[in-house]
């Protein structure tokens, strides 16, 4: 094993792989990476999509492959982890702050079943008001819902909570 072939270097490379739809969040911020291992001098990265039908998944998989291979010079295998499933608690606090600054409301914290009321009064990422309502549970991408702020008059998107 040469000096570059370390788990730390793989993580450093993953920090640079951004979501194509939300370019301020890396695949690590999004909680899409479920395992990183080195076996027989090959990096093996397991990942999960946020939503099952996410059309960006193959693109992201390829970007991870290129980024880690480029940074470490080692062979890389990126596979979809079927045993894990994504839920909004996988987003770190730092990731939620980055989302807010990007103009997308982060998912609220919830336990158990998602109910309609949980999507009400989502704080507006522009003015912070909770005087908002859900316009549609479907937005520009599968992972986003659309809300309206009655105080500042802005339509805004939210990263959907998923349990």
């Amino acid at each position: 094993m040469t000096a570059d072939h370390t788990i730390a270097n793989i993580y450093a490379a993953l920090e640079q792989v951004m979501d194509p739809e939300i370019p301020v969040l890396s695949v690590l911020d999004l909680g899409m990476i479920t395992a990183v291992t080195i076996e027989d001098d090959t990096a093996h990265i397991k990942m999960i999509p946020t939503f099952a039908a996410c059309p960006a998944i193959n693109f992201i998989q390829q970007r991870i492959q290129e980024a880690v291979a480029g940074a470490t010079g080692m062979p890389v295998r990126v596979t979809i982890d079927k045993e894990a499933h994504w839920h909004s608690k996988r987003l770190s606090e730092a990731a939620k702050e980055k989302l807010r600054n990007f103009g997308i409301a982060p998912p609220g914290i919830h336990e158990g079943e998602l109910r309609a009321e949980m999507l009400m009064n989502t704080p507006c990422p522009h003015c912070g008001s909770k005087n908002t309502y859900l316009r549609s549970p479907f937005g520009a991408t599968l992972c986003r819902a659309v809300h309206y702020c009655k105080d500042c008059g802005m339509v805004f998107e939210q990263f959907k909570p998923v349990g």
Binding site: H87, E113, L114, A116, F138, L142, K160, G163
Partner: peptide, 10 residues
């Protein structure tokens, strides 16, 4: 499961 919830909510 979580995704389908949005379909029935809608």
């Amino acid at each position: 499961k979580g995704e389908l919830k949005y379909h029935t909510l809608h």
